[in-house]
């Protein structure tokens, strides 16, 4: 049973220039036309359709040139309002995250808390936030408070549900191993349950980061007397029939949401490099 003469070794190392070329090719994959062309073509088609529509129906859509003008004429205006909205969105998200995460831990550890809290959380979730927002404005005024609360509320439920499920998703055999060495509840939570829940938490964050912008804008729109925020800009500009500014603000919001999603996705790939979601790409 000797090894035959022609058997190659198990791993082959090609010449360095071949390896380098392969590495370069993978890194530059996004730059290849096959990668970005479909999206670019769709973008151009949509732009052309838009211009065509704006030509025929000027009250429906502003020409793209005017939208661009609106931004370049006063970029400081958009920057300021975008910053206010972004700040409200992120602060509200942070608030909602902390509350939902802490509650998820309590819910998964204490059945009493679960039975008390979950029905309330479900009712809160099915109640339209657009309906609650004006009430909060009446209660808290035109400052940032109602915006933070609405954003926190809109982010709360997905984080609570996902985290609670994640914390309970530890495989039975893993639990058996750590119970057999009498790990305390706190140790189990810290070393096993919370890391197990991380993929679920990130799935929630992917939903909730863009949603936080929705929450902030809805609250801004409900507070008719607010001084700033893109939601306010949209309301003011639309009451003056200034479609170009309305659409410019909408585009800034879309950009903001996409950037937030990108940030979460990059963060997720870093943190969850050990998870299937990062490997099966």
């Amino acid at each position: 049973m000797s090894q035959s003469v022609g058997t190659p070794p198990a791993t082959l190392t090609p010449p360095p220039e071949v390896v380098a070329a392969r590495r370069r090719r993978r890194r530059l994959a996004v730059l290849r036309p096959a990668y970005w062309m479909p999206f670019a073509v769709l973008l151009v088609v949509l732009g052309l359709l838009w211009q065509l529509g704006a030509d025929k129906l000027p009250y429906l859509l502003p020409p793209l040139g005017e939208v661009a003008d609106a931004v370049t004429r006063d970029p400081g205006y958009f920057l300021h309002h975008a910053w206010v909205t972004l700040r409200n969105a992120l602060l509200g998200l942070a608030l909602g995250f902390v509350a939902a995460f802490v509650l998820a831990v309590l819910v998964s550890e204490l059945p009493v808390v679960r039975r008390a809290v979950m029905p309330v959380a479900v009712v809160l979730n099915v109640t339209p936030l657009v309906a609650i927002a004006p009430a909060l404005v009446v209660a808290f005024g035109f400052g940032p408070e109602p915006k933070l609360i609405v954003t926190a509320l809109i982010c709360f439920f997905p984080i609570l549900i996902n985290t609670a499920i994640g914390l309970r998703s530890v495989p039975r055999e893993v639990l058996a191993v750590y119970r057999s060495v009498h790990a305390s509840r706190g140790e189990l939570l810290r070393h096993v349950r919370i890391p197990t829940a991380l993929p679920y938490v990130f799935a929630a964050l992917q939903i909730v980061f863009p949603l936080s912008v929705v929450g902030a804008v809805v609250a801004e729109m409900s507070a008719a007397g607010s001084a700033d925020g893109l939601g306010t800009s949209i309301q003011v500009a639309s009451s003056m029939n200034n479609l170009a500014v309305v659409w410019a603000a909408i585009l800034v919001l879309a950009l903001m949401g996409s950037t937030l999603l990108l940030v979460v996705t990059v963060l997720q790939r870093r943190v969850l490099h050990w998870h299937e979601s990062a490997r099966n790409r």
Partner: peptide, 30 residues
């Protein structure tokens, strides 16, 4: 008293810990 060592049917390793850290963790708890 940590007098029991349990080997279940599945390896039950924690996927975010290295092999060495997986071996160390039961010693770090309790």
């Amino acid at each position: 008293d940590k007098r029991i060592g349990l080997v279940p049917q599945a390896p039950a390793l924690l996927p975010w810990l290295s092999v060495l850290d997986n071996v160390r963790l039961p010693r770090r708890v309790n």
